[in-house]
Design a protein around this nucleic acid. Sequence first.
DNA 1: ATCGTTTCCGGGAACGTTTCCAGTTCTTTT
DNA 2: AAAAGAACTGGAAACGTTCCCGGAAACGAT
Lengths: 337, 337
Amino acid sequence: MTIKDIAKACGVSVSTVSRVLNNHPDVSQSVRERVQAMVESSGYIPNNSARDLVRTQSDAIGVVVRGRGNLFFSAMVKTISREIDSLGYTMVLHFIESDDDEVMAGAILEREKKLRGLLFLGGRFDYSAETLAPIGVPFVCCTYTNCFGTLSDSDYSSVSVDDYQTAYRAVKTLIDLGHRRIAVVLPDCADRSISELRYKGYRAALRDSGIPFDADLLVETEGCFEMPETYAGASRLIESGADFTAVFTLSDTTAMAAMKALEDHGRRVPEDCSVIAIDGISVSEYVNPTLTTMVQPVEEMGRESVHILADMIEQRCSSRHLRLEARLRAGGSVRQI
Amino acid sequence: MTIKDIAKACGVSVSTVSRVLNNHPDVSQSVRERVQAMVESSGYIPNNSARDLVRTQSDAIGVVVRGRGNLFFSAMVKTISREIDSLGYTMVLHFIESDDDEVMAGAILEREKKLRGLLFLGGRFDYSAETLAPIGVPFVCCTYTNCFGTLSDSDYSSVSVDDYQTAYRAVKTLIDLGHRRIAVVLPDCADRSISELRYKGYRAALRDSGIPFDADLLVETEGCFEMPETYAGASRLIESGADFTAVFTLSDTTAMAAMKALEDHGRRVPEDCSVIAIDGISVSEYVNPTLTTMVQPVEEMGRESVHILADMIEQRCSSRHLRLEARLRAGGSVRQI
DNA sequence: ATCGTTTCCGGGAACGTTTCCAGTTCTTTT
DNA sequence: AAAAGAACTGGAAACGTTCCCGGAAACGAT
C-alpha cells in the first residue's frame, strides 16, 4: 500500500496525492476530497522513511534523561511525551546514568542520524560547543540552574527554575518560623555542581538572617539524590549529635529518606525536627507528614521545553532562556518553633 | 557526507562501502580496512531513513505506557530504555492516558510506519486480533494478568506477574498474622478488569481461611490507581465506621494514599490498622512506616520484555508468555494481631 | 591450455516519497 | 476575441541506501 496505489485508485497522479497529503494548495476541492476519502477508507499511512529521506529530516525529537532515581524528571517525561505527540513529533527517549558520559555522547551521536531536536533533562549539561555544534540540531536543556556548562546563551535554549532563589526561599521559610539551626543534606554528585546553587541559596538565607554557618550541620552524601545514600547521610548527621531543629534537603525523595532516618532515630517530624525540600512530586503529598516543599512547575517546564524546541526547529525563534518560579506548598513537615 | 563520498574517497564503489558497513563477506581484507579507516576518520554516519526505506524496516521499538500516575511502569521504562539501547534499537515512547483509546490506537498506527516491534506497559491490552494484525510487527505486553484481551496466545508475547497469586499471598500474609477483618480498596478503572484478579485473590484468600466476605469492607474508587481518589475512598471507608484491622491496596501509591487517610483520621499504622500492598517501588521503602508489599521484579520484567520482543523481531522465537513471581517484602506497615 | 570454481567488485534497479518544472485548462482582463 | 494570468495536474528527478546480478580476476585441477 503506497502512494501509487492511492493515486491509481483515484485516477490521479502521485504528485497530486502527495499534495493532498501535505496540505499543499494547488489542488482542486473535488480532487482533494476524493483523495482524502480514499486515504481514509484504505487506511493508508505514508512511509516515514521515504518522507524523511527526501526531506532530509525526520520527525524525531530526542529526549535524554540523566540520573537514575530522579522522579522529578521522570514525571516530566509524561508531559513531554504528550506535548511531543500533540505537535506531531515523535519522542525518542534515552535514560542514562549520570556518570557514563560516553553513553551520553553515544546516545546523541548515534541518533544524530536525523533528529530534529534534542531535549536534555536533569543532570549536568557539561558539553562544549565543539561537542554539540556538529550535531547540528537545536537543543533545549531543562536542568539545574548552573549546570549549563560553558556554552554561550545563543547556542541553546533552556528552561529552569532558579535554584538559588528556590533554596533561599525554602530556608528563609524555616528561619521565619523561628528555626536557627538548620541542617542541610547535600548530594556530592557531579562534583556537587548540581547542588551548588541550592547550597548557595541556603548559605545566603542564613547569612541574610545573621545566622552563622555551622559546618557540623552540613552532611554530604554520595550518589546523586539517591535515597539510600541520603538515608545513610542523614543518619550520620543525627548520630553525630549535632543540634538542629530543621533539615533542608534538595529534593522530595531525599526528604523522604531524611524523614525516615529521623524517625528511625526516634526524632518525630515535625515535632522534633522540621523538614523542607524542593520538587513537589505527587507522592510527597501522601507521605506522613505531608512534605512541605518548593513545588517546581513540572508540567509547565515540560510543556515549555517542548514548545521552545519546536519553535527552534520551525525557525520561529533562535534561542530562549525561560526561568520559572517554584512556589511553596505548605505541608505538615514543618512547624513553628 | 554520504556513502558516495566515502566510496569516492576510497576509490571503490558504493556497493563495496555498503558491504563493509553491513559486515557482509565478499570484500577483501585490504579494501575492508581502508574503507573502515575512512569511515572512522570522516565521522560518516549512514542515513537511517535511506536504510530503513530500502530495508523496509527501522530500528525503532515502540513503547506505550498507559496510566497516568503509574510509578511502577514509569520505573520500568528506565530499565527498558537501557535494554533497548544496548540491543541497538531505538525507543519511541508514548505515555497515554488510560481512557483515551483513540490516542492509543493512533499512537500505534501513526507510528506503525516502520516500527520493528511494540511493547505495551500497564493498563488494559484490550485490542482485538483484527486491530493488531495489520500492524504487522511483533508485540509484547507487560501488564496485569488478565488484561490481555481476547487474543490467542500465539498472537503476542507477554510478561506478567500472577496477580491472583500475588494478591492471594498478600492477603494470606495478613490472615496468618491474625487479621480477620481485612478491607480492600479497589480502583474501578477500565470496568475494574485491571483489579479483577487481585480482587479475586483477595476473595480466595478469605474463603480458604474460612473468613466470610463482608461487602462493608470493600470500597471502590474512581480513577485508575490514582492517589487522590484512593485517599477519598479510604476516607469514606473509615468514616463509614466499618470495623477492620487491615487494608489491602493494589499498589504502593494507593497504599500511601490509604495510609495517609488512616493517619489523618487518627488511625495509626500499623498499631491501629495494618496496610499491605503490591508493587515495591523505591519510595515505598522510605515512607513511614515502611510499606509491607509484594515486590514485583520490575527490572526483570522490563529486561525480559525487551529481550522477548527482540527475539521475536529477530525470529528467534514466535511468542512467549513469561510469568514471574512477586516476593513479600516485610516492612513496618503490618503487624501481628 | 582449458575449464570450472571461488573471490572480489561495480553497475544499476529499487525502496516510497517530495518537489521542481512544464503543460493544460480555466478565468479574467483588455 | 485574443492575450495574460491563475489554477490545477502530471512527469520525472532526486533523496541515500541495499542488494541482485553479471563480470573480472585469481586460482586450482584436469
